[in-house]
């Protein structure tokens, strides 16, 4: 069954489009990721699905309910976690949770198993003010509050932004377990590495959805061979590769360079020789599998730091 069904949903503010018409659906029990940089339109899409903003075109249903017409009933079935921490910083952990539970006519006790996994870690801090929690703890509390009324669909807008690496991993473990328990989850993130944890992801950029696929499917969609080039002289290597006759693109990727060859069968030794002649002696060149970030870079030729040669 389809949990979220979006048809040509769009949002314009005057003449500027925050979200161009997008169409996709999310199956029940799916962990669906929206991956894209800041300003791509992720938050606008979430706010429309969360019944907070009216769309200017198209339709969307969540759990079979229209986001515009059935918004009242829908609010009971949605769990929404805004990108910005939106709980009361001057109330304690327990007070926040109790407040949101009782607003929905639920109690912490009756729905405890829903949040046991996450809230268990927060329990020792139950009397601490939410404002005094660490970033990771805040996110866990926010997730608990979004879950306490047993929603059917969970909307998480950049839940891991500003959270340390360990807490991010823990958070995704929790999401995976929630998905396994049958909850449908829509999550957005600017971190490409988190995409691999989703069942399917949509790449979104400038209000457009570029591609929707499984994480592996997206990686497989990279059309050309990708090579990683490691060198102590990254700048010279980058300049040399840009002049390489079969260069398609070169961009820095962490400590390395990612080089795309425009031929189907690139020769590693030929590239090494080219680099050596350009004065890069210690180049290590290996053919690698493209990651989601590479696909993103490929689909967005305007990103800074990338040199589109072709």
């Amino acid at each position: 069954m389809t949990a979220v069904d979006i048809k040509a949903l769009e949002k314009r503010f005057g003449k500027t489009a925050a979200l161009e018409p997008v169409t996709f659906s999310v199956a029940e029990g799916e962990l669906f990721g929206l991956i894209g940089p800041d300003g791509a339109g992720k938050t606008t899409l979430f706010r429309m699905l969360a019944t907070l903003v009216l769309p200017t075109g198209g339709t969307a249903t969540v759990d079979g309910l229209d986001v515009v017409r059935d918004y009242r009933e829908l609010r009971n079935r949605l769990g929404y976690m805004p990108g910005r921490f939106a709980l009361y910083q001057d109330l304690t952990v327990a007070e926040n949770l109790k407040f949101f539970a009782s607003i929905f006519g639920a109690t912490i006790e009756s729905n405890y198993e829903m949040i046991r996994d996450i809230y268990g870690q927060l329990e020792p801090f139950r009397d601490r003010r939410a404002g005094a929690l660490s970033g990771g703890m805040k996110q866990k509390l926010a997730l608990s509050c979004a879950l306490i009324h047993r929603p059917r669909v969970l909307l998480l807008d950049e839940p891991t932004t500003g959270v340390d690496a360990v807490s991010r991993l823990e958070f995704w473990d929790v999401l995976t377990r929630l998905r396994d328990s049958g909850l449908t989850i829509l999550v957005s993130t600017p971190y490409m590495d988190e995409a691999a944890r989703c069942d399917r992801v949509a790449l979104i950029q400038d209000g457009h959805i570029l591609e929707i696929n499984t994480p592996t499917g997206i990686e497989d969609s990279y059309p050309l061979p990708l090579l990683s080039v490691k060198s102590s002289d990254r700048l010279t290597a980058k300049r040399a590769l840009e002049r390489f006759p079969f260069a398609y693109s070169v961009y820095p990727f962490g400590e390395e360079l990612h080089f795309t060859d425009s031929r189907a069968e690139p020769s590693v030794s030929e590239i090494k020789t080219w680099l050596h002649e350009a004065g890069v002696a210690d180049a290590e060149v290996t053919v690698i599998r493209a990651g989601i970030e590479d696909v993103f870079m490929h689909r967005m030729p305007t990103v800074e730091g990338q040199t589109g040669v072709a």
Partner: peptide
């Protein structure tokens, strides 16, 4: 200002 209205607005209040 502190954004809590977002969380409140998605409730059935």
């Amino acid at each position: 200002e502190i954004g809590t209205i977002e969380q409140l607005n998605v409730t059935p209040i």
